[in-house]
Nucleic acid binder design. Structure first.
Length: 587
RNA sequence: GCUCUGAUAGCUCAGCUGGAUAGAGCACUUCCCUCCUAAGGAAGGGGUCGGGCGUUCGAAUCGCCCUCGGGGCACCA
């Protein structure tokens, strides 16, 4: 909505520049495109057009040019509403925020939870793969970053008009899975998650750790695990029974974690079912002549034209590899649910793998291979270095969430807010989740991030709970307004009363929201929404601290400020939904 | 060796399709609850934007070189 205003001013200034050029030079000239910027301070207006670039061509000093343009445009009778300002070498515009507020209010009223969405992705069908845990241990912080990003990007793509299918590929086979099975067989003594009261994934994880300890003393441990894998591949009934049982334990545990973290999927794939896929596809490529066979029987792809090396696609014994599987699963997924685009949310260490994978799929002639994306995210490190499972520095997901929830509950109690909050457990879980998602999504996905436990459990400053607090404050304010007989659906309201600098800033920020949604989608970057949210909350916070809303004086001013607050709340709600922050009416 | 990626305040991060005195949060020093929830607000100190050269009227932002950090380059996943 802000963009419409911006574009109409830009077109107008460009037109006047051209006409000015004609007057000065007596002929038409090609002028550089006009840049539209935001002035650094509110006093300088809302839009800025730097004029440096025209000085030479028009033989006019930029401040002079700004003054001329101001005069010319000022005379145009049907120009857009707003004031023109000359600020040094810039021509600035103070837009008519009252008019903007009126149209925003109508738009938000009409669109509600859909305000900010767009149809830029049309009805594009996008499959998004994320999470993809192993079934031998519980989730840790690294998974949480993956899950937060995956869930958020899915929501963002939907908000940009796409139809999204979220898929999870469970890594439930392989030698690492056999390790926990083997350790359980040797040391488990028949205990179960039920008998020990442990969550299934933690229970299985315990045996994975146990295997590592045991392998230090028993040299044949690794080999025994390999043998078990062999038996698994041969469908040995004893191994299969154990495998089914232990996988169920882990998956039940993971489901519980997902549920708590607000993560869900439209479809689960299991590597035990997909790991043999892909072989036929590779052979098809061989027939087509896009791959080649070495003398020893292995199948390769030459990646010279994308400036990479050669890559094996099938072993000499004809068996599959990681790459083979991924080729197979991509094709199978497309058969299951024909997509236009596929996004993999996978750590940045696999960039090479995906470059090759996408190229191989293109070589096989799949048209959809042109729209494959690796949403690569950086590692999560701790202040004193990397997380290392061997050194026990891994931050466990369930534990962290539990700790955060406990702290939130303690905060509610210390403020004696139990009564207003109602369900303390539910509210503290929501606060914990908001804190965690915001902390993880705040950083640009591409970058490595440092997870500071002390900072992450703080609810002050630039945090999820700060945002939730602003939402809750507005909610209770609106509640009071209505309980005191106010009617906030009554329209129109007098937007011309919103003249304070902070009010103008808030109106612009609200108007900016749809653009942020679009950009977050285009750049696959939820952190843009986090920055936006923080800025919106900070503006609101400052404004309502200094300016009474319910006690503003006149009914009209109260009504106008209530409307502004309600708009902020709706935008907070909508944006929260895209970054996994639960909206709270009270906290 | 080849390649991708990063370096901004003591710490964690924004800003990077070039533009006006480089912004937040935390931490530190002050101040503000007879007033809609102080999970808040205000003020202050703190920066040669890793270094150099270049392009430009103008560079944290673009290009080249260098330094340092992280990843990747398996018939592992």
């Amino acid at each position: 909505m802000l963009d419409t205003v911006r574009q109409s001013w830009k077109a107008l200034v460009e037109k006047e520049l051209a006409s000015y050029a004609l007057t000065i030079l007596g002929k038409e000239v090609e002028l550089p495109e006009l840049a539209v910027q935001t002035p650094p301070k509110p006093e300088l207006g809302d839009l800025a057009f730097p004029l440096f670039a025209y000085a030479k061509i028009l033989r006019t000093a930029p401040p002079m040019l700004a003054a001329s343009l101001k005069e010319r445009i000022g005379k145009i009778p049907d120009r857009p509403l707003g004031d023109l300002l000359v600020a040094g070498s810039y021509l600035n515009i103070r837009i008519d925020t009252a008019a903007l507020a009126t149209s925003l209010s109508m738009a938000i009223e009409a669109e509600g939870s859909h305000y900010g969405e767009n149809r830029s992705l049309g009805d594009k069908r996008i499959t998004i793969e994320f999470s993809c845990p192993n079934t031998n241990k519980p989730l840790h912080l690294g998974h949480m970053r993956n899950d937060s990003i995956g869930e958020s990007i899915s929501a963002i793509m939907k908000a940009n008009g796409a139809t999204v299918r979220k898929v999870n590929l469970i890594n439930d086979r392989g030698v690492h899975i056999c390790k926990s099975m083997l350790a359980y067989q040797k040391f488990g003594k028949g205990e179960t998650p039920e008998s020990t009261g442990m969550k299934g994934d933690h229970f299985v994880g315990k045996y994975y750790v146990k295997f590592a300890a045991w392998a230090k003393e028993e040299p044949s441990a690794e080999q025994q695990a390999q043998e078990m894998l062999q038996r698994w591949e041969e469908d040995d009934p004893v191994v299969m029974e154990l495998w089914h049982r232990m996988n169920k334990w882990t998956l039940d545990g993971l489901s519980e974690s997902y549920e708590k973290m607000g993560i869900s999927f439209d479809h689960y794939y299991y590597e035990s079912e997909t790991y043999k896929y892909g072989k036929d596809e590779i052979l098809k490529g061989l027939d087509k002549g896009v791959f080649y066979r070495e003398e020893d029987g292995s199948v390769w792809v030459d990646l010279e034209n994308i400036k990479l090396d050669k890559k094996v696609l099938l072993r000499k014994d004809g068996t599959s590899l990681y790459m083979t599987q991924d080729v197979g699963t991509a094709i199978m997924r497309h058969k299951d649910w024909p997509f236009d685009s596929l996004i993999y949310v996978v750590a940045s260490e696999q960039q090479y793998h995906f470059k090759v994978l996408f190229h191989v799929l293109a070589l096989l002639g799949h048209t959809w291979a042109e729209d494959l994306h690796h949403l690569s995210y950086g590692m999560v490190n701790l202040p004193d270095g990397k997380m290392k499972s061997r050194e026990g520095t891994v931050v466990d997901a369930d534990e962290l969430l539990l700790q955060l929830t406990g702290l939130a509950a303690a905060e509610i109690r210390s403020k004696q807010r139990e009564e207003q909050v109602g369900d303390v457990d539910k509210t503290s879980s929501a606060i914990a989740l908001g804190a965690l998602n915001y902390y993880l999504l705040q950083v640009n996905p591409l970058k490595d991030m440092i997870f500071n436990p002390t900072e992450s459990i703080s609810f002050n400053g630039n945090t999820g709970p700060y945002l939730q607090y602003m939402g809750a404050r507005i909610s209770s304010m609106l509640g009071r307004y209505e309980s005191e007989g106010g009617d906030r659906t009554k329209r129109p309201f007098d937007s011309s009363l919103l003249t304070l600098s902070d009010e103008r800033e808030l109106i612009k920020q609200i108007a900016l929201y749809p653009e942020v949604v679009a950009r977050a989608g285009a750049e696959l970057d939820p952190s843009l929404l986090c920055s936006f949210l923080y800025e919106l909350s900070r503006l609101f916070s400052r404004w309502y601290h200094d300016n009474p809303v319910l006690k503003a004086g006149s009914d009209e001013l109260v009504r106008a400020r209530i409307e502004l607050s309600a708009m902020v709340m709706q935008v907070l709600k909508n944006a929260f939904a895209l970054v996994g922050i639960p909206f709270l009416h009270s906290m």
